[in-house]
Design a binder for these strands. Structure first.
Length: 271
DNA sequence: CACTCTACCTGTGCGC
DNA sequence: TGCGCACAGGTAGAGT
């Protein structure tokens, strides 16, 4: 389940890995499942990308941005959201299209960029105006400054769990890191943002930053037996009934806003 | 404004 | 063994 740290790992691997996507020219495209292309905004034909070259890769929240340049032409941006199960990776261009392959971009030097996604939730956009797609999103959760974070908290009264999942509040936190951040901050997921004390607001900001930074450094999360992107060890997510790694209390699981929500009843008391 | 529900998907794992 | 079903979850959009 790619969230901010897993998406950041994709950026780093495609940008800094060997081989790197940067500088590779697109030869052709295979849109295996056309539904992967979001219809809004409409009107761009992906086949036009032949001859374009990826000049940079960026990320905001869980969105990926590939700048595509071609001499004398307007810059296009290929925007990708992996949603639940999407994967983006380089393969030899001879690699077979697999059951869950939704798109393949064939590149120079015998390579191809593949987008595979079993659940068909992931989406791509082609646009000259990427800001129009991420319009309304909050600041990136990894980079948001404490004063801005606290100013945003002071705006309303909401349960902490749904608030952290709201991409217009801060961008990049999903179900795993929402639970992990609240756990580290020692805050119950049902607490109301409007009731936080000043030091609790600071703790929440610091917890989000440290959890996400550690997860990025670890290359993503490692959820026992379910999913492994990297080596970040979770304390609460998916650990119902297992002992809290801090105090040994069995981890609780409740539903909040239709979402499985995990917390330690001892470390995260409800006020 | 805050919230709830539904739709979109399919692989997994459970109970029977 | 096989079947049916709940479940996982990010986001948009509609409804309360």
């Amino acid at each position: 389940m790619p969230e901010l740290p897993e998406v950041e790992s994709v950026v780093r691997s495609l940008r800094d890995g060997k081989p790197s996507l940067i500088g590779l020219r697109i030869r052709s495209l295979d849109l295996v499942w056309p539904g992967v292309v979001s219809q809004s905004p409409p009107g761009f034909d992906l086949a036009r990308l032949a001859g374009y070259c990826c000049s940079s890769i960026a990320r905001l929240g869980k969105y990926l941005f590939f700048s595509l340049d071609c001499a004398g032409e307007e810059t296009y941006v290929l925007v990708v959201h992996l949603r639940m199960t999407g994967r983006l990776f380089l393969v030899p261009d001879s690699a077979a299209i697999e059951r869950h392959t939704r798109m393949a971009l064939f590149l120079e030097h015998g390579l191809a960029l593949r987008f595979d996604d079993p659940r068909k939730f992931g989406r791509i956009w082609l646009t000259v105006d990427p800001a129009s797609i991420t319009d309304g999103m909050g600041p990136d959760a990894l980079n948001v400054a404490e004063d801005e974070f606290i100013a945003r908290l002071e705006g309303g009264r909401r349960q902490l769990k749904p608030l952290l999942l709201d991409q217009s509040f801060v961008a990049g936190i999903g179900n795993i890191y929402a639970d992990e951040s609240l756990n580290r901050a020692g805050l119950h997921p049902l607490m109301n943002s409007g009731d936080l004390l000043p030091d609790e607001r600071q703790r929440l900001h610091a917890a989000i930053r440290s959890v996400l930074n550690e997860a990025v450094a670890a290359g993503g999360a490692n959820i026992d037996g379910v999913f492994k992107a990297g080596n970040f060890v979770v304390n609460v997510y998916g650990r119902e009934g297992a002992p809290c790694r801090v105090c040994g209390t069995p981890i609780s699981k409740i539903r909040v806003g239709q979402r499985g929500t995990h917390f330690c009843g001892h470390c995260q008391p409800l006020r």
